[in-house]
Nucleic acid binder design. Structure first.
Lengths: 148, 148
DNA sequence: TATATTACTTGCACAACGCAAGTAATCTGT
DNA sequence: ACAGATTACTTGCGTTGTGCAAGTAATATA
């Protein structure tokens, strides 16, 4: 499992699993936007190709970050869900959000990203509650989407 | 500058810049290990190729995350250094470290990663102090390398 | 029973990566 | 002063990964 690692550094190990343009976006969609299905991810706006999405889902599953279960009422639908290991990525995503909002994004007003930053623990607690209770409504902060 | 973005989400934007297997490792080496030169990065253990390293350094410079200055006493040597934008990635790296140590790494003893987690703010303050004061000694926690 | 939906897979062109080798500028030892 | 070493790259080339379009199998709906 942890053979063929390029190094023992946990940052390096994390990046071997998550270091690409798409994996963490899938985690974001599961965590924040309440997405569950293949089709949801396809339509998430960044325009991932079907083959790339399939390969990333496969990788995330192999790494134990997500799992999939067939929907009881519709055998066609696979519902993806974060594992504990997956939801533990919440702080990583939050810090990426804060960094991007501060240094790169014109889309998130400074006031909103500063509020998220200030209420870091509250935000994480809410993300974890949603996961525990399978709350799949898109996450908002003060009535606004946090990613726009 | 922020044209041709696949979406307005700051997480997506961050990943377009940093979402690969190498960029954040270079930032780690600058931030934690006190590396400065091309040669330092080459020998950092993960085995990055020279052309890839050159292209990543170029990208990080273009993104304003690092800057390079020629060493006064040796004109051959380029010293790379994190900018403010670069040092602001410290929380992202820290969370990747914590996640990797908890879920992937056998190299970091649980006790040590828990201590880092508990002293999150102290750790970040120390990283920022080192940057301000140009302290390039490899960062240790209680006399141990934090990445092993 | 025909059509739609979901979650993929396959084929192909193109870009990125990884390794080995080479190069230009600068420094060091004699 | 000159040979050899050092630093920071670039170039070539074969392999791997990505992105798009099209196709497919299983299941659901009208």
């Amino acid at each position: 499992m942890n053979s063929n690692r390029r190094s023992a550094c946990p940052v390096s190990t994390s990046l071997e699993i998550l270091g690409d343009r798409w994996s963490l976006l899938i985690v974001r969609d599961l965590m924040i936007r309440g997405f569950r299905t293949f089709k949801d991810f396809l339509e998430s706006g960044e325009g991932i190709a079907t083959n790339i999405l399939a390969s990333r889902l496969k990788g995330l599953k192999a790494s134990g970050i997500i799992k999939a279960e067939i929907e009881a009422t519709d055998q066609r639908r696979l519902n993806y869900r974060l594992t504990k290991k997956g939801i533990d990525l919440a702080p990583v995503l939050l810090e990426l959000l804060i960094w991007g909002a501060r240094h790169e994004s014109s889309a998130v007003p400074c006031a909103r990203s500063r509020r998220i930053e200030k209420n870091r623990e509250k935000f994480l607690a809410e993300v974890r509650r949603r996961w525990r209770e399978r709350d799949a409504t898109p996450l908002q902060v003060k009535g606004r989407w946090i990613w726009k």
